[in-house]
């Protein structure tokens, strides 16, 4: 057998079966802010990454534990290396780009997105469905009732489509998504040796805060972490005014809080908001910022079935100049009040 599988007739280099398309959908839905996703297949699982303007990056890792069977036959071009190199950063891992929108559309073709889809159209009035936990395990889901179908994923090799076969109660949907050449695969660098802020908190508090701030339709989100109260503050200002959410009781709210000195960075609000689906779905978030202001938000998501997955986001901050607007305003204001006092 040749190193590269024969297109179309050889064994696929990747084959996996999942008993729940909904799980996959929920996780991938967290990063739907970009229409195209880059997929990397390894022995450990599938890694989907999306990015927006090189400023925001979202990564979902579908661990092989999410699948009932997971076979990855990596190309055997250099067998001796392959033996040693079992780690997922092997250089010739299959990597390609697919349309994420089409993939999501396929995964929810049997209604996996019931709850998620209704969020856009339905009001939040119905007590059960509107709960913030709506995407979490549900006793009435197909999954729990044992009525779920299965989802098969396969990939034969470079240039071949990524195929999804969904079966549910006798109905089979086959979908072949074209694969494209991968784009620049570089990650937004987070300097792990220069982490200045590390906070672990309930993801829904972050969700609540972001939802709160979005009412002022801001363009920029300022995040400030203080070593003492108010510990963490998110603020945004639009043309109608400003809004701030503070987490003033650090101990009760923040599970882990490591901040050496005051840390302030600004991000594009819409980008932070793009992570709202993950904030809603996740149970916890690990929130890290480095010296340069690169923000990493790592969400721990408990999907149906109890296994834990992670969804990562990385954001590049706005460049902060020394004479930042707000600081300047405040400075002027204080100067002004001082001079008023002098006059008085």
């Amino acid at each position: 057998m040749s190193a590269l599988a024969e297109p179309g007739n050889g064994a696929p280099i990747f084959k996996a079966v999942s008993s729940s398309a909904r799980q996959l959908f929920q996780l991938l839905n967290c990063i739907r802010f970009s229409p195209k996703a880059q997929v990397q297949i390894s022995n450990e699982g599938l890694r989907f990454s999306v990015e927006e303007s090189r400023v925001m990056q979202g990564i979902v890792f579908l661990d092989k534990a999410l699948f009932t069977t997971f076979n990855c036959t990596l190309p055997e071009a250099e067998p001796p290396e392959d033996d040693q190199d079992q780690d997922p950063v092997a250089p010739d891992l299959p990597i390609f780009t697919i349309s994420l929108a089409a993939l999501l559309e396929t995964l929810q073709i049997f209604g996996a997105a019931d709850a998620a889809g209704s969020r856009f159209s339905k009001s939040d009035n119905d007590g059960y469905g509107s709960n913030i936990r709506r995407d979490r395990p549900n006793a009435f889901s197909n999954q729990a009732l044992g009525a779920a179908g299965i989802c098969r994923l396969s990939y034969y090799g470079v240039g071949e489509p990524f195929s999804i076969i969904l079966e549910e109660s006798g109905v089979t949907t086959t979908c072949n998504l074209n694969t494209y050449e991968p784009e620049s695969p570089e990650e937004i660098p987070l300097d792990r040796s220069a982490i200045q802020v590390k906070i672990i908190m309930q993801a829904r508090w972050l969700f609540d805060a972001v939802a709160e701030l979005s009412s002022t339709s801001p363009s920029r989100l300022d995040i400030t972490a203080f070593p003492s109260a108010p510990y963490l503050s998110l603020s945004a200002s639009g043309h109608l005014g400003s809004a701030t959410v503070e987490f003033s009781k650090g101990r009760e709210l923040l599970e882990t809080f490591t901040v050496a000195e005051k840390w302030t960075q600004s991000y594009k609000f819409d980008m932070v908001k793009a992570a709202a689906d993950a904030m809603r779905l996740a149970s916890k978030v690990s929130f890290r910022g480095d010296e340069q202001g690169v923000l990493s938000m790592q969400f721990m998501v408990e999907v149906e079935g109890g296994s834990i997955s992670f969804v990562d986001f990385r954001l590049v901050p706005f460049i902060r100049e020394e004479d930042d607007e707000d600081d300047e305003d405040e400075y002027e204001e204080s100067q002004e009040s001082e001079s008023n006092q002098d006059q008085n």
Partner: peptide, 25 residues
């Protein structure tokens, strides 16, 4: 008077010390 900013401030204090502050112009 004499201050350049006029603000209508609403502070909403939630449980666990979450404080939401709106400063509307």
């Amino acid at each position: 008077e004499g201050k350049s900013k006029s603000r209508f401030t609403i502070r909403i204090i939630c449980r666990h010390g979450v404080i939401k502050t709106y400063r509307l112009t």
